[in-house]
Computed example of a mutant assay.
Amino acid sequence: MARTPDPDPVVSRRWRWALLAALGFVIVPLVYAVAVLTPLGQRAEDAALGGVRESDLFGTDTALNVISVPVILLLVVVIVAVAFARRRLAVGLGAGVVVLASAATSTLVKHIAVRPEIAQSTTPNSFPSGHATIALAALFGVLMVTPRRWRPLVTLVGAAYAVFVANQTVVYGWHRVSDIVGACAIALFWTALVRAVGPVVDRGVRGDRDGTVGPRRVVSVVLVVAVGVALAVAIAALVVGLGGGAHDHAAILLAGRLASSASVVAVVATVWFADGMHPRLVRRSS
């Protein structure tokens, strides 16, 4: 009996990215509506700002200062140059769109999504985080032009940097958890949209172009475990912060930092698995 041919993997991958783009598109207004447009959402997030103290700030804001317009433009030029050297100029242009469109969308949403004064908040609007958006979009753009065998290393380094940026913005009191989640959704939306309708990033049979299986398995485990641990500790810190008579703002701030970190790692893991980087077990035919 003839075997039914498998669906075109390119088509299935495009549908997968299209669904992720739709998810990112929905998350942005949903988070804004719940966390910014409701008194409960505003009070919950502002409780974390009460834990911000100058003594808790990181010793340097270099990671944040790196993100600037000249650096973004330089990054796009480098991405396109690398893609051109690899004879994948169309992919490089798509990666540039991911970075520039994500940055522009974050700026536009920040001006459109105003923060109404409905919870006696004295802090200005900050939705979404431009720094977190660019850090993630830059990672996803770089990954598009990076050979598959090097993506595990780039993913871990880029994810660590994005987590550090998200943490700094929360610790400094610049942003709330919803700002980071919104940033993650914007970066996911543009990455997935470009991957869905743009040029195919990986051509032909992968084979040994993926490199050894070990590093990819390690990255998969690290990403999943990191999300789980961050969420578990965030929930524990939130319970401590809300327990008792008075709120422990330091514990609530810690919960916010970890929830923000979990959001960043979760979106990185989503792109990692959607890109087919996790090694699959192949059954041998009998």
Rank of each mutant, 00 (worst) to 15 (best):
R217G: 14
V264C: 06
G204H: 08
V240I: 14
R216W: 12
A226C: 11
L258V: 04
L223T: 03
A262N: 07
V221Y: 08
A262Y: 05
D210K: 09
L254P: 03
S263I: 13
G243P: 01
T212R: 15
R217C: 03
V201S: 05
V224A: 13
G241F: 07
I235A: 15
A269H: 13
V205A: 15
L253M: 01
G211N: 02
R209F: 09
T270D: 12
L223A: 01
D248N: 13
L238H: 14
A236E: 11
G243D: 15
V219N: 05
A230K: 00
V225G: 01
A255P: 09
A259K: 00
A259G: 07
G214P: 00
P215T: 14
V264N: 03
L231H: 00
V265H: 09
G214E: 13
V229L: 13
V224M: 05
S261L: 10
A237R: 12
L253T: 08
T270Y: 10
V201H: 05
G245T: 13
D208K: 12
G204S: 04
G214F: 12
R257G: 11
G207S: 04
T212M: 02
V219W: 10
L254A: 15
R257T: 11
V240T: 12
A234F: 06
G256C: 01
R209W: 10
A237L: 07
G228K: 00
D202G: 04
A246L: 08
V240D: 15
R217H: 14
A259S: 13
A255C: 08
V224N: 01
P215L: 10
V264W: 08
R203T: 06
V268Y: 09
G244P: 08
R257M: 14
A259L: 11
V239Y: 09
I235M: 06
R216F: 04
D208L: 12
V268R: 12
A236T: 07
T270N: 03
L223P: 09
G228N: 01
L238K: 03
V225T: 03
L238P: 04
G207Q: 12
L253A: 05
R217Q: 13
D202N: 06
A226H: 02
A269K: 08
